[in-house]
Amino acid sequence: MTVRKAATIAASMLMVLVFVSINGDVSQYLASLKYGDAKAASADITYSAEERQRLLTIISEEAEKRKITPEDARIDRVWKAIPGYNGVEVDIEKTLDAALLAPSANAIPYVFKEVEPNIKLNDLGPHPIYRGNSNKKMISFMINVAWGNEYIDSILNTLKRENVKATFFLDGSWLKKNADIAKKIQADGHEMSNHAYTHPDMRALSRQDQYNQIAKTEALLKSTLNVDNKWFAPPSGSFNQATVQIAEEQGLKTVLWTIDTVDWQKPPADSIVRKISSKLEPGALILMHPTASSRDALPGMIAAAKAKGYAVGTVSETLSSKRLPAAVEGAD
């Protein structure tokens, strides 16, 4: 090693030691880098106990003002099981850490965390679900598939173009014959769920037959698509309390819809869009099938939801108690 090179290394090490000495101990310096704030890395981040306590007091007082209480899941007289919605509160410890690393002239960078409800959807027992929580500005498309293969590609193309994920409820006998199409739907990131096996009138069946209809499709979803499913949509909306109980025994919640496109009657696409737009509300579950009417109406339905400031997600996302980003929640 040349004398010049050794001198350069020694000078560099000295500069680092001086920098760390001026700006606090090594752990504080590394912590500043962890938070990714270049200004904090070069700022004086040594605080007295009094200053830490002052910041903690400010953060704790502000935390009380910013707290949003979680909303418990509940049984509604009309809509039956309604999911809860997470609350939000300031993470005092992480906010203090961030504040101690921030430049002193900056506002306190509050860090938030979600708080789950005491009563969750799964705590309500066997009740049908028709909609999500009205405080969650998200809606879902429920696409029931037992026929209509010729329209599926067009529907998938629209969903991909609009960056929307839907939930496809599959008839088991259809899935058995159309595994490749089902895998294509799944590959696009859509949720795959249970629509019985032979599209029966569930409430007209015996308890055992109802059980078999759900179980056969559930087994196919697992063996063909490796799906751990959560939802059962009874064909034609026909069910009784036994149906809901049997689905619950298999780990599934029974899901119906908030708004029906009635696309099987082949209405004009523009009439579907007008109907959906006029009835849209937070938490809405929109029922459709792979028909020509819904294929043509889908872009307009998505546009109507986005125009109202609603996110569009899967049934699992809409019925989850997780909060949406503040930008979505605050949109008009």
Rank of each mutant, 00 (worst) to 15 (best):
Arg4Asp: 09
Leu14Gly: 01
Met15Trp: 02
Val16Ile: 15
Asp25Trp: 12
Ser27Phe: 13
Lys34Val: 04
Ser48Lys: 03
Glu51Gln: 10
Arg52Val: 15
Ile58Tyr: 08
Glu62Ile: 04
Ile68Cys: 00
Glu71Gln: 06
Arg77Ser: 09
Arg77Phe: 08
Trp79Glu: 14
Tyr85Asp: 02
Glu89Tyr: 08
Ile92Pro: 11
Phe112Cys: 12
Glu114Asn: 11
Pro117Arg: 13
Ser140Gly: 04
Gly148Arg: 10
Ser173Asp: 07
Leu175Glu: 08
Ala179Glu: 14
Asp180Met: 05
Ile181Gln: 11
Asp201Lys: 08
Leu205Ala: 06
Tyr211Leu: 02
Tyr211Trp: 04
Lys222Val: 04
Thr224Trp: 01
Thr224Ser: 05
Pro235Lys: 06
Pro235Arg: 06
Phe239Val: 00
Asn240Glu: 06
Thr243Lys: 01
Ile246Met: 00
Glu249Asp: 08
Thr254Gln: 02
Val255Glu: 02
Ile259Arg: 04
Gln265Asp: 12
Val273Gln: 01
Arg274Gln: 07
Ile286Cys: 08
Ser294Asn: 14
Gly300Lys: 07
Gly309Ile: 07
Ser316Gly: 02
Thr318Phe: 06
Thr318Gly: 03
Leu324Trp: 09
Ala327Trp: 11
Val328Thr: 11
Val328Gln: 06
Gly330His: 13
Gly330Asn: 12
Gly330Tyr: 12
